[in-house]
Write a protein that binds this DNA or RNA. Sequence first.
DNA 1: ACACCGTTTGGCGGTTTGACCAAATAGGCA
DNA 2: TGCCTATTTGGTCAAACCGCCAAACGGTGT
Lengths: 104, 104
Amino acid sequence: MDVLEKRKYEELARISKALAHATRLYIIHKLDEQEYCVKELTELIGVDISTVSKHLTILKNSGIIIDEKRGNCVYYKLQCRCVLSMFSCLTNVIDSNKDKMNAI
Amino acid sequence: MDVLEKRKYEELARISKALAHATRLYIIHKLDEQEYCVKELTELIGVDISTVSKHLTILKNSGIIIDEKRGNCVYYKLQCRCVLSMFSCLTNVIDSNKDKMNAI
DNA sequence: ACACCGTTTGGCGGTTTGACCAAATAGGCA
DNA sequence: TGCCTATTTGGTCAAACCGCCAAACGGTGT
């Protein structure tokens, strides 16, 4: 793997790492339905608000979501709806694993 | 997030974690072209063979690739070509980030 | 200015990851 | 059998990750 190729795959990995967490996938799913502020997401998820804030920062830095301050709150929404196709990718893998299992 | 939903997103995360590494993405890319044994992949990648073996185990456990022992070697190939659509997802995000950058 | 609300930041502790090395394992072949 | 090659496994170490708490910010409204 030469230097250029290596950089390319590290860039791809940077995005895919941002997706590699149950809470962050859940956040993406919720933000697909509507925008939410940090506090609202925190109530939906049920972990410390600082943890949620950090997850949101990770997603924002990878360009998947975008924030917008309005009044007292910071609202987040999907920047890149294309990530939703990720869910079908992942679901596909899971389903085909199950099929494989059943076939045995 | 109730217990059932939580489990669902953890399952999705399990798969997406398997993809969240530059080397593993590269392996998937190469295995899309043809099957390879561990030694061949090691030469392509340029890290210790035990490291490559562990990456392959991770991919295998998540159901993305499959192994087949023939003669002296263990050959790996894609089990789930659907993961390739992941690459276009990731590339999409990267491209739309770049567009955003240029627009400024 | 002060208090209040929502959010982010910094830091700490426990867990996980990923790299290497060395050793164990599994087959093929002389 | 014993040797050789390919692969996996176990251990160690440093770095990264993720949760919480506490403290710092930034606006709003009194």
